[in-house]
Each structure stands twice: as structure tokens, then as C-alpha cells.
């Protein structure tokens, strides 16, 4: 593994580090709003991964201008532009589900929601 290889790939590794921090927030925390924030962190990191792949060293932003010959790849930009907007739409749906859960259970903690479900199904005595 030489220096050129590390300079050519460190960007991806840092993005994966951020991605995994987001995934950790999603799987280890019980609060639903925090899970959604973690999911957003994960999602933004995936965007960074795509945009990193579109970068051409020495290129500029893909806006045509006389005298410039090298542009970064515009296609990942278009994909991610769509993904950002769809991501906000899914976040809105997720948050509205959380609000409905709060109305129905009075809590937004996963453990308490599971306990309430268990109580509803088997009665109070069977709780572990």
C-alpha cells in the first residue's frame, strides 16, 4: 500500500467512517427521532460517496465556460440532487409516523413501545 494509493482512497474511507457513525446511531439508540437523525447522517454520507466518485482532479464545476476543457462528472450530481429531495420527503413521512406513535403510545422510546405491545398482547404479569 503506497502513498499514492492512500491519497487516492482516503476520501472514501473518511466517508465510510461518517456513514458508520450514522449507522451506529440508528441501531444503538432507542429514541425514534434520534434514529431518524442517524439515518439522515448515513444518507448524507452516501451522497458524499457519490459526489467523490464524480470528482475529476483539475476539473471545475460542470458549468460550460469558454477556455475550460476539463469538467467534473455532472451525472452523480444529478442523481444526488434527486436523492436529496426524495430524502427529505421520506424524512417527513418518518417523522409523521413518530408523531403518530407518540399520540398512540405516549412515548417515542423503542423499549417502552415494545413493552406496551407486549402488555397489550399477554397481560401485565407476563412481562420479563
Amino acid at each position: 500500500m503506497d502513498t499514492d494509493f492512500i491519497i487516492g482512497h482516503y476520501n472514501y474511507w473518511l466517508v465510510i467512517l461518517l456513514m458508520m457513525t450514522g449507522l451506529y446511531t440508528v441501531v444503538s439508540r432507542g429514541n425514534y427521532i434520534k434514529k431518524i437523525v442517524g439515518l439522515n447522517v448515513f444518507q448524507t454520507s452516501v451522497f458524499m460517496m457519490y459526489i467523490s466518485m464524480g470528482k475529476v482532479s483539475g476539473g471545475t464545476a460542470p458549468i460550460l465556460e469558454t477556455g475550460i476543457t476539463l469538467y467534473s462528472n455532472p451525472l452523480p450530481h444529478v442523481l444526488i440532487l434527486t436523492a436529496i429531495v426524495v430524502g427529505v420527503a421520506t424524512t417527513a413521512v418518518g417523522l409523521s409516523i413518530v408523531v403518530r406513535i407518540h399520540q398512540a403510545y405516549g412515548t417515542i422510546e423503542e423499549d417502552e413501545v415494545n413493552d406496551a405491545d407486549h402488555r397489550m398482547e399477554f397481560g401485565k404479569e407476563d412481562l420479563p
Binding site: F47, G59, P76, H77, I80, I84, G87
Partner: peptide, 21 residues
């Protein structure tokens, strides 16, 4: 990373609208 269109969408929609939601 040269993605100026993505940057201003992220700043407006990601940092603005999602935070408000």
C-alpha cells in the same frame, strides 16, 4: 468536490427544511 448545485440544494433542503421538520 465541484458539486455546486448539490451544495446549494443540501444547504437549503438538508440544513433548512429537514431541520424545520
Amino acid at each position: 468536490l465541484d458539486a455546486v448545485d448539490v451544495a446549494f440544494t443540501e444547504a437549503a433542503v438538508g440544513a433548512g427544511v429537514s431541520t424545520v421538520l
